[in-house]
């Protein structure tokens, strides 16, 4: 898979880039993984309700947080420094045309990465994402066009968890969030973690894996 990194990129600009990358995969291009780094932003999915944003526009503004509507599923989430955001652009026509299985597989990818760091994580029924006990460590929101995926997931490495407290992340009231740093007390390099993510995505979405389903 091709891998592309985008450092401190504007969200709208990233959406334009993503659309172009998706078009290339729809036209038969190679699957790819995009890693955009965003400054403090909130993104909202199609299930967003205004009541899940717990502060006023003025407070958001004073925090320097911008809110963007995204063409993905799910509710509201936070992106910012100390997080890995990953957009796997995968053609499911060459894998398995199954939206639910794709999301569960993304959860498995994140859990496998966390397992390498010594973190035991879990999935919860009806609550998409990855959890460490009752605390959420990774959020997922996906879109599909012609069975090619876009958007993806965010994994908390060591973000400022305060930003999750001013929203009901993914629409969950009183949700607590955690991070790799908080769970292990260790500093893992982002490049090492991205390497683990790439390995797991390549393993799960190659042609041999498709035949196994």
């Amino acid at each position: 898979m091709k891998v592309k990194n985008f450092h401190d990129i504007d969200y709208r600009e990233m959406c334009d880039i993503q659309r172009k990358e998706v078009s290339e995969v729809i036209s038969g291009g190679e699957n790819r993984i995009l890693f955009p780094d965003f400054n403090h932003i909130m993104t909202t999915g199609r299930d967003f309700k205004k009541t899940d944003l717990l502060v006023t526009d003025n407070i958001l503004s004073s925090l320097g947080v911008k809110v963007f509507a995204a063409d993905r599923g799910g509710n509201i989430t936070y992106h910012g420094p100390g997080q890995i955001v990953c957009y796997p652009i995968i053609d499911l026509k060459h894998w398995k045309k199954d939206v639910g299985l794709f999301i569960r597989t993304i959860e498995n990818v994140i859990m496998a990465v966390l397992s390498k760091l010594g973190i035991a994580s879990l999935k919860k029924k009806q609550l998409t994402g990855v959890w460490v006990k009752d605390k959420k460590i990774a959020s997922i929101g996906i879109g599909f066009s012609k069975w090619v995926s876009y958007h993806g997931f965010s994994l908390n490495v060591e973000p400022e968890l305060y930003y999750f407290s001013i929203i009901n992340p993914c629409g969950i009231k009183d949700a607590e969030y955690t991070s790799i740093k908080k769970e292990t007390g260790k500093n893992f390099s982002v490049e090492l973690l991205k390497g683990y993510i790439i390995d797991e995505l390549e393993c799960c979405f190659n042609k041999a894996a498709a035949l196994a389903y």
Partner: peptide, 18 residues
């Protein structure tokens, strides 16, 4: 043909039908 006509929402995913 193949232009996205409608966007559906499922749990955590949007899906465009061409």
């Amino acid at each position: 043909k193949n232009d996205d006509v409608v966007e559906l929402t499922t749990d955590k995913a949007t899906f465009n039908i061409p």
